[in-house]
Simulated scan of single mutants.
Amino acid sequence: MQFKTKEEQVADFLREGIISGRFARGARLKQQEIATLLNTSITPVREALKLLEAEGYVAGDSFKGAVVAPFDIEASSEVLSLRILLETQLVKGAVERAKGADIAELKVMAEEFAAAFDAGDNETARAANYRFHHRLFEVAAMPQTLHFVQILWARYPFDLINRLSGRVSRAAQEHDDMLAAIIAGDTAAAMLATRQHIEAGFVELRDSLKADVSKVGK
């Protein structure tokens, strides 16, 4: 795994927190609180927030400071298509480059995700989900593609999707399907499993939102 600067480590922590829902959309991110939590100085926190603002995870406000960017439902369909395009390529690269140690690490992460769900700790499960995908894509050694994917993740409603009833359990099975294909060295199956995993969450959220609108209309 490549060396990361302090600001990159802070940025990873905040991305995970935003995607998992630990930091809610619209919530203010206080630099000193984050620095204290991570036992670091203000400087890497400030630089991490600048990076995340450029990626779209946070928005700057002259009065409130950095706040978690709101979710744009209108952009989700386009982001979905781009995620499928780029993430299937990352999985292809991961299949080609994965070593035994990588597979073992991914298995542990998948198990942590499932264990957190079984324990009813959904926030931890959502964070573990982020770590699983991020580590899987790191294996591909395609840093530019991963960078663009992280920008797309900033615009995707993971926090809403993973709160859907039963979604975390289904995602755990989908992770197993992806890992099984990677272990078998089956590139086509791994890419298909990844596409189905991404689409499943989006379809479930879309159907849930439609149902909510229908209820309101009655």
Rank of each mutant, 00 (worst) to 15 (best):
I84V: 08
L37R: 08
L38F: 09
L51C: 08
E74D: 03
A59K: 09
G60W: 15
I84G: 01
K92E: 10
I42R: 15
A35K: 12
I103M: 13
E78N: 10
A98S: 06
V91Y: 02
A75T: 09
Y57S: 04
S77H: 05
E78F: 05
R46T: 10
T40K: 11
T40C: 12
S62I: 13
V79A: 00
F71Q: 12
L85M: 09
G56P: 00
G60Q: 11
N39T: 03
F63Q: 14
E33Q: 14
I34M: 13
I34S: 08
Y57L: 05
A94M: 07
V79R: 05
L106V: 00
E96S: 04
L82P: 06
A94I: 02
E53F: 05
A54S: 08
D102S: 00
I84P: 04
V58C: 07
L90P: 13
E87Q: 04
A104W: 03
G93M: 00
D72V: 10
D61I: 11
V58S: 06
L80M: 09
R83C: 01
R46K: 14
K50L: 09
E47I: 04
V95D: 03
V91N: 07
S77W: 04
Q31T: 08
S81H: 04
A48W: 12
K50F: 07
I84H: 04
E33P: 09
S62G: 12
V95T: 02
I103P: 13
Q31M: 12
R46M: 13
T36K: 14
V67D: 07
R46Q: 15
V58D: 09
D72N: 12
D72F: 13
T43D: 15
I103N: 05
L38S: 07
P44E: 03
E87T: 03
A35W: 09
G60E: 12
A48L: 07
K99L: 03
V79D: 02
T43P: 14
A54L: 06
E105W: 00
F71Y: 15
N39V: 02
L86V: 01
F71E: 08
K99D: 03
T43H: 15
V58Y: 14
L86A: 00
V91S: 05
V68A: 09
G60S: 11
R46V: 07
I34F: 12
A75Y: 06
E55H: 08
A98M: 06
A54C: 05
G93V: 01
D61C: 12
V45S: 06
A35I: 10
V95P: 10
K64R: 15
E55N: 08
E87R: 05
L52A: 11
L82N: 11
I73K: 06
Y57N: 02
K50D: 07
V91M: 05
K92P: 01
E87F: 03
E47Y: 09
G56F: 05
T43A: 14
V79P: 00
E47S: 06
D102Y: 01
P44D: 01
E55W: 08
V68N: 06
L86S: 02
L37W: 11
V45F: 11
F71V: 13
G56I: 06
A104P: 11
I42L: 15
S76V: 08
Q31N: 12
V95W: 03
E78M: 11
D72T: 07
L90W: 03
V79M: 07
R46D: 12
R83S: 00
V79Y: 07
A98C: 04
V95S: 02
T43I: 14
E47K: 10
S77F: 07
I73D: 02
I42A: 15
A48H: 13
